[in-house]
Simulated assay, not measured.
Amino acid sequence: MQNPRRRSPEQQGRHTPNLWPVWLVAPVSLILVAVLAYGLYHGVDVFLTAENPGKKPVSGQDNVKTTVTALTLVGAVLAGLYAYRKQLLDEGASHRADAMQLAERYTKAAEQLGHDQAAVRLAGAYAMARLADDWEEQRRVCVDVLCAYLRMPYETDTGAEGYMKGEREVRLTIIRTIRDHLQDPTEATTWCGYDLDFTGAVFDGGDFTRAQFIGGTVNFRNAMFTDGTVSFLGATISDGWLNFLGARFTGGTINFLDAIITGGTVNFLASAISGGTVSFLASAISGGTVDFRAAELSGGVIDFDRATLSGGTVDFSAARLSDGIFSFDGATLSGGMVDFSSVRIHDTCMISWGPLPVIPVNEP
């Protein structure tokens, strides 16, 4: 059985006041007022008598007037408290209405993202992003929904079963929307520091130009890059984790041109590059790690041309370079470490070390 002295549980909704039940407050208030009136009456009598020593006793009418005046002041205070209580209830109702409206917007945007027509899905993507800006409490949920959309099965071949006309534009728009929210970590609506999960997604393009990855994990684990350019042009990686673990590159380009890596990790551990290009052209690596351990290059290009390595680690230990092009042409190494321990290089792989020292390798 519920304890009647306990306050009622907080109502559903945001900012709803936790109030005592009326059936308990009302009789307690009446008893307190009665006790207060009784005490005031006798207290006033004692006070007025003490203020008039040697004179005739204070009349009961004077006592009543003084008591009524005091009770009137008390009533005014109680009325103010009641008005404040009513204001809290009105604010709670208003916030509940806001929460219902936001929930309805979420439901509508989610339904639009699942629509058959690309134009409606596109509107749903914009609506979900706008909702994330307006709904701070559930912003992460809205961002997760957009990421989940990119993880959905995606057919890039226009002649294959399951291809959806206009789908590429919807996906590129979602990526651009995410990029736009990663530009300034000081903005109130920033998504910097959020975990972004693209596990197993298929990419045939995408623009993360000048995004700032500060904290959190951006997960491209087991993703497939098939065509187009996924651009991290001028991106800043100062913390957190860009994870391409087990990703497959069969075409297109993933481009870190002019990227600035001062911390965190860009991880290509056990990735497979059979086509396309993974380029760190003219990037500046002064901290953190770029990790290609156990990666396999069987076609395409890994490119660190004109990169500046002044700190941190670029790690190719146990990588296998069996075909394609592997280039450090024009790279500058003034600090940090480039690790090629136990790397295996086949004769058909074109290698350009640039100014880097010749590093012993193990032939397959």
Rank of each mutant, 00 (worst) to 15 (best):
Y154V: 10
S94F: 10
D180M: 01
E169G: 11
G92R: 02
D184A: 03
R168C: 06
R130G: 14
A129Y: 10
G159W: 04
M164K: 15
D195I: 01
Q101G: 12
L102V: 07
R171E: 08
G124D: 12
Y84D: 06
T199C: 04
C147N: 10
L182Q: 01
M100Y: 08
Q112F: 14
A132T: 05
T107D: 15
T186G: 00
E187Y: 04
V74P: 00
I178D: 01
M100N: 13
A125P: 10
E161L: 13
E155Y: 02
M128E: 10
Y106H: 14
V141R: 10
D90H: 07
Y154K: 12
G205L: 05
Y163A: 03
E155H: 03
R139P: 00
R171Q: 05
G92Y: 03
R140A: 12
T158Q: 11
E111P: 08
R168L: 12
K165E: 11
G114H: 11
R140H: 06
L78P: 01
L81H: 03
L102E: 09
V77Y: 05
D98Q: 13
G205Q: 08
V68Y: 00
L182E: 00
E161W: 10
D133R: 11
R85G: 10
A123H: 13
E104V: 02
T69G: 14
T199E: 12
A103G: 11
D90T: 05
Y163N: 04
A119R: 15
A119Q: 14
L122V: 06
H115C: 13
V77S: 03
I174A: 01
D144P: 01
G92H: 00
R96S: 12
A76R: 00
I174C: 01
T158C: 02
R171H: 09
T156V: 15
D144M: 09
V141P: 00
A97P: 00
D157P: 06
A110H: 07
Q138L: 11
H115I: 09
D184T: 03
T69M: 14
K86D: 08
E136N: 10
E91F: 08
V141L: 12
A188I: 04
D98G: 08
T107L: 13
V141G: 09
P153F: 02
A103E: 13
W135L: 08
L113F: 09
H95M: 14
V120N: 07
G193T: 02
D98M: 11
A188K: 11
A119W: 13
R96W: 09
W135Y: 12
P185H: 06
T158P: 07
G162V: 08
E187N: 03
A99G: 07
A70W: 07
G159N: 14
A132V: 07
D133N: 12
Y84E: 07
T72I: 14
D98W: 07
H181S: 02
L71T: 02
T199Y: 12
L102M: 11
V170H: 00
R130N: 15
C147Q: 12
E136F: 06
